[in-house]
Amino acid sequence: MEFVKWMDELPFIGKLLLSLPIVDLTWAIYRIIKGVNNKNNGLLIVGILWVVFGSYALWLVDFITTIILGKPVLTDNLE
Rank of each mutant, 00 (worst) to 15 (best):
K71T: 14
V61G: 08
T26F: 06
Y30W: 03
I64D: 06
A57R: 10
T26H: 06
T26K: 03
M1R: 10
G35W: 07
D24H: 07
K15Y: 04
K34Q: 10
V46W: 06
V36S: 09
V52K: 07
Y30E: 00
A57N: 12
I45D: 02
E79D: 14
M7R: 05
G54M: 05
I48Q: 03
V51Y: 08
V73A: 15
L60A: 14
D24I: 05
L78V: 15
T75L: 10
V73R: 11
K34D: 04
T66I: 03
I68Q: 09
I48W: 05
I45Q: 07
R31V: 05
P21R: 00
N41C: 00
I45W: 12
S55F: 15
E2C: 01
V73K: 13
V51W: 12
F53R: 03
N37G: 00
L44Y: 12
I67P: 05
G47P: 08
M7V: 09
L17I: 10
D24T: 13
I64S: 03
L18W: 04
K15N: 09
I33K: 15
E2M: 04
L49E: 04
W27E: 00
V73C: 09
M1F: 00
L74C: 14
L18I: 01
D24K: 02
I48R: 03
P21Q: 02
K39T: 11
L20N: 04
G35P: 12
A57Y: 14
M7C: 10
Y56T: 13
S19D: 07
I29E: 01
T65R: 00
K39G: 09
L49V: 13
F63R: 04
L74T: 10
V52G: 08
T65M: 08
K34V: 06
G42K: 12
V51I: 15
I68Y: 12
S55Y: 13
D8I: 03
I33L: 14
L18D: 05
V23H: 01
N41P: 01
K15A: 00
V23W: 01
I48L: 15
W59M: 02
A57V: 15
I29D: 00
K15T: 07
G70R: 02
W6V: 10
W50R: 13
S19L: 05
G35Q: 06
E9K: 09
N77M: 11
D8E: 14
L78W: 10
G47S: 07
L25D: 02
W59E: 01
V51A: 10
I67A: 10
G47N: 07
L44K: 14
